[in-house]
Nucleic acid binder design. Structure first.
Ligand code: FES
Ligand code: FES
Lengths: 140, 140
DNA sequence: TAATACTTGACTATTTTAGTCGGGTATATA
DNA sequence: TATATACCCGACTAAAATAGTCAAGTATTA
């Protein structure tokens, strides 16, 4: 049960952006330097964030990315979804009649994992990007 | 963010066991057949469960494994711990002064992931093995 | 003594992760 | 208009983790 770098970096990068004046394009190069994340990797991540309307891009000199909405209105669950990061605790296809063991019925633990999945998704649904900024002033 | 088979199977197998009279050794072969889990894999898993005092073993014919405690007193968190399945959402070593990016300070998202980790661990801490049985009668 | 069932360590194929890279296109500014 | 900046996009890859598999045991009971 662990979190991958793609979702961690996505949130980290967006949090970085939201510390600066909105509507002001921020280049991936700057984020890369400030947060020590590979530029190439960031490009990959932001492509998805863009496709999912979380950021928009400004090309050319002085370009970069801009948050599409106020950080107050960006849920972490959206970010996760954007980078294809599903919370998956069940071993079966949810909509299928078959269980994780290939049998016809759902397994003995299915309901438990399902409950866990809902539980975790709740966390991401209730957290906004802006929640990352109010903790305390940071210098990195 | 997903769950691996080792922890899923561990819980599944123990839940299977707790449906039968306690103190009655249950062979892995039976669990394997009922739950469609590889016998070899179960052996690997139960070795750890035994080392962590969740089950005890009875060798020889009619042997098997026996739950050491009542399912009411077995937390899922113990089971996860036993099979080495930590919930790991932060990218850094928790006790280290260094952040996930190798810098001296904790990163901008550290507190968030830490909170998530606590949140998820709470789920496992509050669930008992017995909670899996009361949902409804099942036939597998 | 034969069969059952746990014991242990090592081994492996497959999948996932975590990036990397190359060759673009668009835009601002000097 | 030249040039540098910065996004765009697909393909590629090394390394790690996962999900098992296997072999060669030992203990116990019927
Ligand atoms: S997890 Fe859904 S059937 Fe087992
Ligand atoms: S997650 Fe701990 S410092 Fe980044």
């Amino acid at each position: 049960m662990k979190l991958n770098t793609k979702s961690r970096y996505a949130v980290m990068a967006l949090a970085d952006m939201s510390k600066f004046p909105l509507n002001n394009p921020i280049s991936l190069r700057d984020i890369s330097l400030r947060q020590s994340i590979s530029l190439f990797y960031l490009e990959q991540i932001f492509l998805k964030l863009k496709k999912n309307d979380i950021v928009k891009s400004v090309r050319g000199t002085n370009g970069g990315y801009v948050l599409r909405r106020d950080p107050k209105n960006i849920k972490l669950s959206e970010i996760f979804q954007a980078v294809d990061q599903k919370v998956k605790t069940v071993g079966c296809k949810k909509d299928s009649k078959k269980g994780c063991n290939g049998k016809s019925a759902k397994c003995i633990t299915h309901e438990l994992w399902d409950e866990l999945e809902v539980y975790i998704n709740n966390f991401f649904d209730n957290k906004k990007l802006s929640d990352l900024l109010i903790t305390k002033e940071r210098n990195n």
